[in-house]
Write a protein that binds this DNA or RNA. Structure first.
Length: 361
DNA sequence: AATACGGGGTT
DNA sequence: AACCCAGTATT
């Protein structure tokens, strides 16, 4: 019974949380949704609404990308009741460009639930019941907003803990699933009294020190106790399965102008870019070939403006952009938006790319 | 367990 | 061009 892993005992990392918190007290990033460790030690706690909002925005999204959206949302809707009272179209428009648009729909749905409650849910079970809140977000909000004795596990913390405790399987999907389970269990054994700061400290460590490539171990508060560093294989952790390459899909975009306006249509609520405004388009199924003749939404004198390229999660789109200036208003459903306003109308990035090509010329 | 679902940064 | 994400919901 003597490999390195089975000899793990809690005391190996007995002071780990304390050492990390000492580092965090000096090095904490200042973020719009965050209370400083000094403020928290004085007994202040953050507004749970702001913590929840930030964590939804930060799902699979970097701090620099999310921060301006957080500022905008809290300016437009300072309290959860304000967000709950907003029109869904406005929420979707303001979210445009952040990606994973189901988050925006669930955010608004969740705000309506929260506005009907007497207090913000403050147990893991109650948080998990909210739309758009999964295991990570429940633990993040629980610890950061309420100091519940739990640790969130996101990609950063998976990496930090897998290195600290040398947790890595064979790199298969099944092996990684097992690793994640073990990481989630083991990190709980480290959680100190200041669980909110501990969670934020691990995120800061992952973001600024224990980076995926070339981690800066020399300035790490866990330098001496990190098992991966003792092995000298920091970068081999975590052992994640390879992602499979994405296929390319082709499609045609149809940007229709009429009397200084452009026609946009709202996509169905579910599925890719759900609920977002976009130019008209052919389908873009894998292996599909679409011709102007067969797929034009209206007979017109179409002009080719170039190809908009965009990478989604599981495929890349090569979208050939055609424009038409119609003198007679076509019989097509959708919203006619002033040309000057259309780039601020709340389009997802791929829609903006196509529109920019169409407006150049 | 696998897939759908954006977008941008780093190397 | 490959890799990395401050994940959740659905199948």
């Amino acid at each position: 019974m003597v490999n390195a892993k089975s000899t793990f005992v809690k005391s190996d990392f007995e002071n780990a949380a304390h050492e990390l918190l000492q580092w965090y007290d000096q090095m904490a990033r200042r973020l719009p949704w965050r209370l400083s460790p000094q403020a928290r030690k004085n007994g202040d706690m953050p507004d749970p609404y702001r913590v929840w909002l930030s964590e939804i925005m930060l799902q699979q999204t970097t701090v620099p990308h999310a921060a301006p959206y957080f500022d905008k949302f809290t300016r437009l809707w300072p309290k959860v009741e304000d967000l709950a009272a907003a029109h869904n179209d406005d929420v979707m428009r303001e979210w445009a460009g952040l990606g994973y648009y189901a988050r925006a729909r669930n955010l608004h749905k969740c705000a309506k639930v929260l506005a009907g409650l007497d207090a913000f849910p403050n147990t893991i079970e109650a948080l998990l019941a909210l739309p758009g809140v999964g295991p990570y977000t429940a633990a993040a909000v629980g610890s950061i907003a309420f100091d519940l004795p739990v640790a969130p596990v996101d990609g950063n913390i998976e990496r930090v803990i897998s290195r600290l405790m040398a947790i890595a399987g064979d790199g298969s999907a099944a092996g990684w699933a097992q690793d994640k389970k073990e990481i989630t269990q083991r990190v709980q054994t480290l959680v100190p009294q200041r669980s909110g700061d501990f969670a934020q400290a691990m995120m800061d460590l992952g973001a600024s020190v224990c980076t995926p490539k070339s981690p800066n171990c020399m300035i790490c508060p866990w330098m001496d106790i990190c098992l991966a560093r003792q092995e000298g294989n920091q970068e081999s952790y975590p052992a994640k399965p390879k992602r499979k390459p994405q296929p390319i899909r082709n499609g045609l975009a149809f940007v229709i102008f009429h009397e200084g306006k452009v026609l946009l249509q709202r996509r169905p609520d579910s599925g890719l870019l759900g609920g977002m405004l976009m130019p008209l388009s052919s389908p873009w199924e894998e292996g599909g070939e679409y011709t102007l003749e067969d797929y034009q939404p209206v007979k017109a004198d179409w002009h080719y403006r170039g190809q908009a390229r965009h990478v989604f999660t599981h495929f890349a789109l090569h979208w050939d952009v055609y424009v038409a200036h119609l003198t007679k208003k076509p019989d097509l459903s959708g919203d006619w938006i002033d040309i000057d306003m259309c780039l601020e109308a709340g389009l997802p990035t791929v829609g903006r790319k196509a529109l920019k090509l169409a407006l150049d010329a």
